[in-house]
Amino acid sequence: GYPGLFASLATGNAVLVKPHPRAVLPLALTVQVAREVLAATGFDPNLVALAAERPGEGIAKTLAVRPEIRIIDYTGSTAFGDWLETHARQAQVYTEKAGVNTVIVESTDDYKGMLSNLAFSLSLYSGQMCTTPQNLLIPRDGIRTEEGSKSYDEVVADLARSVDGLLGDDARANGLLGAIVNPDVKARLEAAAGLGEVALASREVGNAEFPDAVVRTPVIVKLD
Rank of each mutant, 00 (worst) to 15 (best):
12 G>Q: 02
35 R>K: 12
186 K>M: 05
8 S>I: 01
60 A>V: 13
162 S>P: 11
154 E>P: 02
13 N>F: 13
67 P>E: 15
119 A>N: 07
85 E>C: 12
78 T>G: 03
3 P>S: 02
181 V>H: 01
169 D>H: 08
94 Y>K: 12
5 L>D: 07
140 R>E: 15
77 S>F: 03
205 V>F: 03
95 T>C: 15
205 V>M: 01
73 D>L: 08
13 N>S: 14
157 A>W: 02
46 N>A: 14
72 I>L: 08
126 S>D: 06
138 I>K: 00
47 L>I: 00
116 S>R: 11
141 D>H: 08
10 A>K: 09
39 A>Q: 08
148 G>V: 07
166 L>R: 14
84 L>K: 13
188 R>D: 14
56 G>M: 06
96 E>Y: 04
120 F>H: 06
37 V>E: 13
79 A>W: 05
146 E>Y: 01
2 Y>F: 10
113 G>S: 06
197 E>A: 14
28 A>M: 13
88 A>Y: 10
49 A>L: 09
101 N>L: 07
119 A>P: 09
127 G>I: 08
18 K>G: 02
189 L>Y: 05
45 P>Q: 02
65 V>Q: 04
141 D>G: 11
142 G>C: 01
119 A>G: 12
8 S>Y: 06
118 L>A: 12
77 S>D: 09
125 Y>D: 06
221 V>I: 14
23 A>C: 07
25 L>N: 08
43 F>D: 03
184 D>R: 14
165 G>S: 01
170 D>C: 11
59 I>V: 14
115 L>C: 11
13 N>I: 01
44 D>I: 05
199 A>E: 12
24 V>P: 02
100 V>K: 15
98 A>N: 12
108 T>V: 00
171 A>Y: 10
137 L>S: 04
15 V>I: 05
209 E>V: 12
102 T>H: 05
151 S>P: 09
63 L>N: 03
150 K>Y: 00
156 V>E: 03
207 N>W: 13
14 A>C: 12
45 P>H: 03
13 N>H: 15
212 D>M: 04
191 A>N: 04
59 I>W: 11
180 I>D: 00
19 P>R: 10
12 G>C: 01
128 Q>P: 12
97 K>R: 15
151 S>V: 10
112 K>A: 08
53 E>N: 05
145 T>Y: 00
107 S>F: 02
192 A>M: 11
111 Y>R: 03
51 A>Q: 06
58 G>N: 10
85 E>N: 11
41 T>S: 12
157 A>D: 05
6 F>M: 15
104 I>T: 02
162 S>W: 10
36 E>Q: 15
162 S>Y: 09
163 V>Y: 07
46 N>L: 06
125 Y>R: 14
145 T>F: 00
177 L>F: 13
124 L>D: 02
38 L>N: 08
52 A>Y: 00
161 R>F: 03
35 R>F: 03
149 S>K: 04
5 L>K: 06
143 I>M: 07
113 G>C: 07
93 V>N: 10
17 V>F: 10
14 A>T: 13
178 G>L: 09
176 L>G: 02
56 G>F: 08
212 D>G: 10
53 E>Y: 05
10 A>E: 13
125 Y>C: 06
118 L>G: 14
74 Y>W: 11
134 Q>L: 10
222 K>R: 15
17 V>G: 11
148 G>W: 02
26 P>D: 04
27 L>K: 05
98 A>E: 09
47 L>A: 03
128 Q>T: 13
144 R>G: 08
31 V>D: 02
6 F>K: 06
193 A>I: 08
211 P>S: 07
197 E>V: 14
